[in-house]
Design a protein around this nucleic acid. Structure first.
Lengths: 121, 121
DNA sequence: CGAATAGTTTTCCATAAGGCTAAGTATCAA
DNA sequence: TTGATACTTAGCCTTATGGAAAACTATTCG
């Protein structure tokens, strides 16, 4: 994927809003219609719809219309993008730790050598 | 925490930009100065500084100035906020799965009962 | 001291985000 | 067929974001 980074932008930004996170939380326990989802929020429907569209464009949810009702559902796979990024980060941290460790080991070895030479004198 | 949600907003939004993610990636392998961090980006310094301040306000990095150099370093603890949110979500999914499972089990039991009554007739 | 270095402050700009109201457009139900 | 339901579209407003240039401050080096 060449637009991996842009996708991440979208996913993280979608998650950067409490309304949208709440919607995702709700969808975690099963699909729901727009008005069901909107009910808990003191917000005009068109404003709420923007959040839904944002979530859909980020790929975190899917929506489908049947009759006059649009049903939204979670796209769980998309969440793994976040997990993926997190583990990349941890991998970098780990690599650093490993480098530091080998430095320490090298230094310890050096010190032992010094000591030995001192004794052999 | 009462501002847990706002903190999450900040963290996710900080992550929603490729420049900032790259900086975090770089800091993963150790602290660095502003100009070191800025070097890879074709961006005026003041623009870059905004990203640094954003990252600092989100709590994902710490910075300290010594002489004329400001050194930035990762605040790894902050990353666990994201992991925390992810596991909350997974917990919701799991709860749903459990409910569905018990429904299925209940239905199976019901069907067995029906069958038995049928036989006992 | 004087110049180069490393940030910092200020001001400006265009676009995106999040919210609103008002006015559509399709279903569905009586 | 009329009315209610369930969204949609369109337009408007304010604030936040990501970027830039110009000018300033504080260190450090020769």
């Amino acid at each position: 994927m060449e637009n991996y980074s842009e996708d991440l932008d979208g996913v993280f930004q979608a998650l950067a809003d409490p309304t949208r996170r709440a919607v995702l939380g709700r969808l975690g326990s099963g699909p729901a219609s727009i008005s069901d989802l909107a009910a808990p929020f003191a917000m005009a429907l068109p404003s709420f719809m923007k959040h839904i569209r944002f979530l859909e464009e980020s790929g975190l949810i899917r929506t489908a219309k049947e009759g006059r009702v649009r049903t939204c559902s979670l796209e769980r796979a998309r969440f793994s993008m976040v997990e993926g990024w997190l583990s990349e980060q941890r991998a970098v941290w780990q690599a650093r730790t490993d480098r530091l460790e080998s430095l320490v080991l090298a230094r310890e070895e050096f010190l032992r050598d010094q000591e030995k030479k001192e004794k052999d004198k």
